[in-house]
């Protein structure tokens, strides 16, 4: 790639490396986007008492399984960062990154089972506003999981080629954020029955 990294990127007047600072800001803007959907959902949920029996159809077990899967993949992401940062062991870090990607794929597989089950039983997006929010919120989150998994795969390959060691931490941060969003989505969509 012809691009020579400008000197600006290597400067760090704040002491935080530029890549990490950008990821913090990215997470900041994502908080507000997910916040917008969830605040609207919480308020309309407060208004619509009748949504509780709509929500009864959501499957807590599959939701719980997904929470477990994401928590585990978060563990692998932080271990990947640990090996990269402390042990400078690209091979192990890459292995953990791939484990996280596997976690992401399991999450998506579990979600696809869950959704096909629900859609077959008629709980489609347009059934009621609860399902509208359910599919919108989980859908946006799912897209973020897919994006995270793809980028993580790319970075796992890059560090095996010995480039961009700092990016393991960056994708780890993003992945933890996606996990935290699911930590809040799980009670809101599944447990609040």
């Amino acid at each position: 790639m012809g691009l020579v990294q400008p000197i600006a990127t290597r400067r760090s007047a704040t002491g935080i490396p530029t890549g990490k600072l950008a990821v913090w800001w990215l997470i900041g803007s994502e908080i507000v986007i997910f916040g917008g959907v969830l605040v609207s959902y919480i308020i309309l949920r407060h208004y619509h008492a009748d949504w509780t029996e709509e929500a009864a159809a959501t499957n807590v077990w599959l939701g719980g399984l997904n929470t477990f899967v994401l928590l585990t993949s978060s563990l692998f992401a932080v271990l990947a960062h640990y090996y990269m940062e402390k042990r400078n062991d690209a091979k192990k870090a890459s292995m953990y990154l791939w484990l996280t990607v596997v976690g992401a794929l399991t999450f998506l597989v579990v979600k696809s089972f869950e959704w096909t089950h629900e859609i077959q039983h008629g709980y489609v997006m347009t059934k009621s506003l609860f399902w509208g929010f359910y599919y919108t919120a989980a859908g946006i989150h799912g897209l973020h999981v897919i994006a995270g998994a793809v980028i993580m795969g790319i970075i796992a390959i890059q560090i095996r080629q010995g480039k961009h060691y700092n990016r393991v931490e960056l994708i780890g941060l993003y992945w933890h954020f996606v996990d935290i969003v699911w930590i809040f989505l799980f009670p809101l969509l599944y447990i609040a029955k």
């Binding site: 978060s74 563990l75 780890g172 933890h176 996990d179 809040f184």
Partner: peptide, 18 residues
Amino acid sequence: TAFGVAVVKAYFVAARFM
């Protein structure tokens, strides 16, 4: 439990993992 635990879990992930 659901929301209390969610906040505590979010704290752990943010503080220790991130």
